[in-house]
Design a protein around this nucleic acid. Structure first.
Length: 827
RNA sequence: GCCCAGAUGGCGGAACUGGUAGACGCGCUAGCUUCAGGAGCUAGUGUCCGCAAGGAUGUGGGGGUUCGAAUCCCCCUCUGGGCACCA
């Protein structure tokens, strides 16, 4: 028999499919383990290395768990709505539905060649009515529980194309297509109230087995800050100006105030002589898109309104400015400026020559030292009336108390997190199931009328606010409540909505009476292991957490968090750089899969480096894994008569073994331990290395196998048996082929075959101990493990090289560490 | 600018809780072998000196703690990733 990996894979993929080896019946959730990879966006580029690196190793982990006896559910599907398909359609004229389905069909075939344990009977596609019907149900559920509302929000608007642009379609403030200046335009859009869950989203992070990095990103994104909202009054008009600050201790250092240009009070309080200037400034600021603002130099801009506000604490009159460095969307949209102790205020004050007052004395500095830059740390309060001399930390509390007591404001918690804007002025998405009735207002489409189908014959080229608005047939409908003529909402949902609940759908992929069966879902979820790229660290993962909580509160789910344990795969680079079309360094997996097969390709990806760090691709490295597989195949083929199906230990007793047999047995069980530990932790690279070591020992042992005794042959067979099982998650096709070669008739994955190591055999029996003089190694000797410290010391002292180095020196100290070293400190 | 992670042979990378640096693989060198072929086997391979024994040196750079540092502390350089005026 000649080794042909590609043929082996074809054979086993066919067998597995015919026998339903990986079929899962979700009604039985005993020992359940839900292992999920982030589903795939079906782009025209198909499967790239990053996908393989996500799916291959995760499947290895899933197989490992299956071999340990878990009922593993590992589904796959398509995140099929989205902008790229729509853009391609605009360019090529091919309908997004057709291009998407075509891509899905190709990708499915490519995915099958990975040979993962996907149970294809649970495949989902977010762009088909059978799925998006329930995305719409989700919208309505949020709507009915008060978690969806309409509000104004700006969009990027291209006045020439007369269309809404995504951030990525705006390049340096200009429209990607026609290069005209993009402006902001306010539209009424739908939001989900994720901010209501800010606290829980923040607190529950502590309980999750997620990378710390990711949790930190979510914490920063939520951006909780504790402070005080303080009421300032406008001098003369008496208008109230609320500001939020985390530093009430700096109140005596306030020298001016700033309102965001969008703040409604700006117009009202501006004095006549400043009207023109302010009006112009607001207009300019309005022209700027968010992207525009980002690409601007950091030079601060702003204009005075002519109005003055009164500091409630010291009754000082301070000028009120408007400047775009203050954001309307955060806090109250207004700030009290403390240039002495805030970097941005400092910069602004310098630019416009506003007074800078030092009110927090930096430890070690003098009260009259000039401030070179804003001092944002803690210190002693100065120039602060009755608070002078108070420690700033204490001052925060005392001033907050005074503000609350005198009714000047109250303590408040602020979040950076904003509500989730889910409206998209796009065609290729799930329509928002709302009807706007002239009499009843906004009316949700009743559940029994779902799905609101996305019409196929729509002109989706740019022009106009939403493509669906151009379909009279779609727009015009009757009000579900009163029956009079009404209009459908013409926006579609953000695709993050589709992916915020798909993990709930998988176990119920084809259920047509509900989005999911409550009982099954509450048994199979949460997802036990979720694996995907860290680019989703915030948005997708935060939205999914929010949706889970919202559905829990609506009475559908009995758990709090969707993903108990999360792993991010690293990035595979090529020549040190991220693979990208523009760099021309993209490695196409297909050619490698075709010549080496899936097992070898995925094993090489795992061997390249730590999974969570990724690695640099090299064409030549894969031959090492190819050789490894070949050597395995030949070894088993030539020695299969010695295979002994000894489940665990069988008749072999470690303590009765000697010499090579004893060593091989020990190595076998050390490898079982290492591969079990490492695979469980996604440390695939070291697990594969351990398998290679074991194979090296096995090959050496096999060289004179014929001359060996029966028990020695049995140890070989025992080790070969375990080797095949340990190999199985890494090279499933090859392992099943070897398994069959050794006389097995059922797939290796049909039973819980994973071994438990023999704990009596894993400890090293001989260790190398080093002898050092002043920390430098001067001798080494191999001794039985556990040799006493005195014996080690004696041994070291009698070593010639050690004697030589001790020679005329004075022994000061001897440090002996059992099984490790002897170190003589001499002088 | 801020935050996070990292830097180990020619290359990818190992290294427990501070205790033999370089496992495993690629590449390279030599030998053997086969019906040259993307083959197989054996041995060697951090660098420098040496026939060898052995010695010196070595984990981005500089300092420190320690009997002993890739690992801990301080400073610096570089690389990758994330966030963008959050009051």
């Amino acid at each position: 028999m000649k080794y042909n990996q590609v043929e082996i894979e074809r054979k086993w993929q066919k067998r597995w499919e015919e026998e339903g080896t990986y079929h899962i019946d979700v009604r039985d959730a005993t020992d359940k383990l839900y292992c999920l990879v982030m589903f795939i966006y079906p782009s025209a580029a198909k499967l790239h290395i990053g996908h393989w690196f996500n799916y291959g190793p995760t499947d290895t982990w899933a197989r490992f768990k299956k071999l340990q006896g878990h009922r593993v559910f590992e589904p796959m599907g398509y995140d099929a709505f989205g902008l790229p398909a729509e853009n391609a359609a605009v360019k090529t004229g091919v309908h997004p539905h057709h291009s998407t389905q075509e891509n899905v069909n190709d990708i499915r075939e490519q995915l099958k060649r990975i040979g993962a344990m996907y149970d294809w009977r649970y495949e989902i596609d977010t762009s088909v009515p059978e799925y998006y019907k329930w995305t719409q149900w989700l919208f309505l559920t949020l709507y009915n529980s008060g978690n969806a509302y309409r509000g104004k929000a700006p969009v990027n608007w291209c006045p020439d194309c007369k269309t809404v642009l995504a951030n990525e379609q705006v390049v340096e403030g200009l429209c990607e297509r026609c290069s005209s200046q993009v402006i902001k335009k306010d539209l009424v859009q739908w939001f989900f109230k994720i901010t209501d869950y800010a606290d829980e989203l923040l607190e529950k992070l502590d309980d999750l087995d997620w990378p710390e990095k990711t949790k930190l990103m979510q914490r920063n994104w939520i951006g909780k800050s504790v402070g005080v909202e303080i009421k300032f009054t406008v001098d003369g008009t008496g208008d109230e100006l609320n500001v939020f600050t985390t530093r009430p201790d700096t109140l005596f250092g306030v020298t001016y105030m700033v309102l965001a240009p969008e703040h409604p009070l700006v117009e009202k309080i501006t004095t006549p002589e400043h009207k023109d200037q302010v009006k112009n400034y607001i207009e300019e600021a309005g022209k700027k898109t968010e992207i525009d603002r980002q690409s601007l130099e950091r030079e601060k801009t702003g204009v005075p309104t002519g109005a003055y506000a009164v500091n409630p604490l010291n009754n000082e009159k301070i000028p009120v400015w408007t400047a775009d460095y203050v954001l309307y969307s955060y806090g109250t949209g207004a700030v009290m400026a403390v240039p002495g102790h805030d970097e941005r205020d400092f910069e602004f004050a310098k630019t416009f020559d506003l007074p800078i007052r030092n009110v927090i004395l930096e430890p070690g500095k003098n009260e009259n030292d000039p401030l070179e830059e804003a001092y944002i740390g803690e210190g002693t309060m100065i120039r602060s009336g009755k608070y002078t001399g108070v420690d700033s930390k204490t001052g925060i509390e005392q001033i907050s108390d005074e503000i609350e007591e005198r009714g000047l404001g109250k303590r408040k918690v602020n979040y950076r997190l904003r509500d989730w804007l889910v409206s998209r002025q796009r065609y290729w998405g799930a329509p928002i199931p709302i009807v706007h009735c002239p009499d009843c207002g906004e009316v949700p489409v009743p559940e029994d009328q779902l799905p609101v189908e996305l019409p196929m014959d729509v002109d989706f080229r740019p022009g106009g606010e939403s493509p669906l608005a151009r379909s009279d047939e779609f727009v015009n409908t009757g009000c579900p409540k009163c029956g009079t003529a009404a209009k459908r909402d013409v926006d579609t949902m953000d695709t993050f909505v589709c992916s915020s609940w798909y993990y709930l759908r998988f176990p119920n992929a084809h259920l047509d009476t509900a989005p999911f069966d409550k009982e099954i879902t509450n048994k199979w979820l949460p997802v036990d292991k979720y694996v995907g790229g860290s680019e989703h660290a915030v948005m997708h993962l935060l939205y999914a957490r929010f949706i889970t909580k919202a559905l829990r509160d609506a009475g559908y789910l009995s758990f709090d968090e969707p993903f108990i344990s999360l792993v991010h795969q690293g990035t595979i680079t090529n020549q040190g750089a991220k693979m990208s079309k523009s760099k021309g360094n993209v490695v196409n997996p297909n050619s490698f899969v075709e010549s080496y097969g899936s097992d070898i390709f995925r094993m090489y990806l795992m061997f390249m480096g730590p999974y969570e760090e990724g690695g640099d691709w090299s064409d030549s490295g894969i031959v090492g894994i190819d050789r490894f597989s070949r050597r395995i195949y030949h070894l088993v083929r030539d020695n299969n008569v010695h295979f002994t199906d000894t489940g665990s230990n069988g008749q072999i007793v470690f303590t009765e073994l000697e010499g090579d047999a004893r060593n091989l047995y020990r190595k076998c069980h050390q490898t079982i331990k290492k591969v079990t530990d490492d695979t469980g932790k996604f440390h695939f690279n070291t697990a594969v290395a351990a398998l290679m070591e074991l194979l090296n020992d096995l090959s050496r042992y096999a060289q004179n196998l014929q001359q060996k005794s029966d028990i020695e042959k049995a140890v070989f067979g025992h080790t070969m048996y375990h080797f095949i099982v340990l190999l199985a998650p890494f090279a499933p096709h090859l392992a099943d082929e070897l398994w069959e070669m050794c006389g097995k008739t059922e797939s290796i994955f049909s039973k819980a075959n994973w071994p438990v190591y023999d704990s009596t055999a894993v400890a090293a029996e001989e260790v190398t101990v080093v002898a050092q003089i002043n920390g430098k190694i001067r001798a080494k000797f191999v001794v039985p493990a556990g040799t006493t410290e005195d014996a080690l010391k004696e041994m070291a002292l009698s070593d010639n090289n050690i004697k030589k180095h001790m020679n005329d020196k004075q022994l000061v100290k001897a440090i002996v560490v059992k099984d490790k070293l002897v170190n003589f400190v001499v002088r």
